[in-house]
């Protein structure tokens, strides 16, 4: 990572925890874990509370849907770490019920059910342009999304418009598939807190 404090500026207890994680998972500690564990009162704890509520709080979107939105926002922001991480979590959550798109191309998105597809396209616009109008939202409502579903999707979008920026700013290392699979297993069982 680009800041040494995020790599090795943690206290003794946190470093010991990282050691345990490495032994148990047989994978390196992901940089996102190092980030949220560095001075957690400043960023890690309050942000994890927000992200956990958005990703695991009550919603008519499934966990898989929300993880797919996270991966999609990450892909829109061209964040390789978060795209791969949350594609893995989404696929883990969906199981065989839905195949997560590999590239999020328009052709792949066309295969997704409504109102998920229209919601993803709206999130792309929020992420790229920050200039939506009422017509953009009417399209999502017309596709069958409720107001609450849109607000829930925007909560996911908020979290990952923060996290992806930090991943790229701090230069998160992108590990191999086994590390992401281990991370996905953890996020499905424990969530973000």
């Amino acid at each position: 990572m680009r800041l040494q404090i995020l790599d090795n500026g943690h206290g003794f207890g946190t470093k010991a925890l990282f050691g345990i994680i490495q032994v148990m998972s047989r994978q390196p500690v992901l940089d996102v874990v190092k980030l949220v564990r560095y001075r957690p009162d400043f960023y890690g704890k309050p942000m994890s509370n927000v992200t956990h509520e958005a990703m695991r709080g009550p919603s008519s979107w499934s966990v898989g849907d929300r993880e797919l939105m996270a991966a999609f926002v990450a892909a829109t922001n061209q964040c390789e770490f978060c795209t791969k991480a949350h594609t893995a979590v989404a696929q883990h959550a969906y199981g065989e019920s839905l195949s997560v798109p590999s590239s999020f191309s328009d052709a792949e998105l066309a295969n997704l059910p409504q109102p998920l597809r229209a919601t993803l396209l709206m999130l792309r616009k929020v992420t790229q342009q920050q200039a939506l109008n009422a017509d953009d939202m009417r399209e999502v409502l017309a596709a069958g999304a409720s107001r609450q579903q849109i607000e829930d999707a925007l909560a996911v979008c908020f979290s990952f418009n923060v996290i992806t920026r930090l991943a790229d700013c701090f230069g998160f290392a992108v590990p191999g598939p086994k590390a992401f699979a281990a991370g996905a297993k953890y996020l499905i069982s424990r969530g973000y807190t």
Partner: peptide
């Protein structure tokens, strides 16, 4: 960096929620 990222994500969300309010009217 954290403040910059949270600030921009907040503006994006607020813009989208304003558009949603307008659509719901």
């Amino acid at each position: 960096a954290v403040c910059a990222a949270v600030g921009q994500a907040t503006r994006q969300q607020e813009s989208a929620l304003a558009a949603l309010d307008a659509a719901m009217e």
